[in-house]
């Protein structure tokens, strides 16, 4: 029951997003249907990951388990690439929209940035610089100097 309900919730949310994109004339009806079906496959894999997480109690987000499942299915050629290609690309293209609702929640936490809260900004900048430099140094010192052309792919 929980399954059907959550797949339904996901699909309705998707339908709302898709219809807006469709109305603004960026996607045709046939393509929209294809994306809808492919995203349904991805939602089911995600719910499977969440179910595994809830059942096994491992402290890893269910969606990451879903990611690994889909990745393995793709490598093992159980799911052909074209079954999920358009759906994945669509979800990834609207990913920044999807975390807006979570971000809006910051309105309840503005007080954290008052007083010594400004230090948080400084620490985030410092820590990011350290991560960039450490990763960059290791790759610069021991990695190959150039990456060959045929490897290129960008989503």
């Amino acid at each position: 029951m929980y399954w059907i309900q959550s797949v339904f919730t996901g699909l309705t949310g998707l339908l709302a997003n898709l219809s807006i994109v469709y109305l603004t004339g960026e996607i045709h009806m046939k393509k929209a249907m294809k994306i809808l079906i492919q995203v349904a496959v991805i939602i089911i894999i995600c719910k499977l990951g969440e179910a595994i997480q809830a059942w096994s109690q491992i402290p890893i987000p269910g969606s990451i388990i879903g990611l690994l499942i889909l990745f393995i299915l793709l490598i093992a050629k159980v799911i052909p690439e074209k079954w999920i290609m358009d759906g994945s690309n669509f979800l990834l293209s609207i990913m920044t929209l999807l975390f807006v609702p979570a971000t809006v929640g910051i309105m309840n936490y503005f007080h954290i940035f008052q007083g010594k809260g400004w230090l948080l900004i400084l620490f985030m900048i410092l820590s990011t610089v350290l991560v960039m430099l450490s990763s960059g140094f290791v790759a610069e010192k021991w990695g190959k100097k150039s990456v060959e052309q045929e490897d290129h792919f960008t989503a």
Partner: peptide
């Protein structure tokens, strides 16, 4: 309703990862 799709969008990251598999294997250790 929008937030609900966040999980599936994480799952969708499997696709670009799959497309980059030869690149990863080539520079695996580094």
């Amino acid at each position: 309703w929008i937030h609900e799709l966040l999980g599936p969008s994480v799952v969708a990251l499997a696709y670009p990862l799959y497309k980059h598999i030869s690149l990863i294997m080539k520079h695996f250790k580094i």
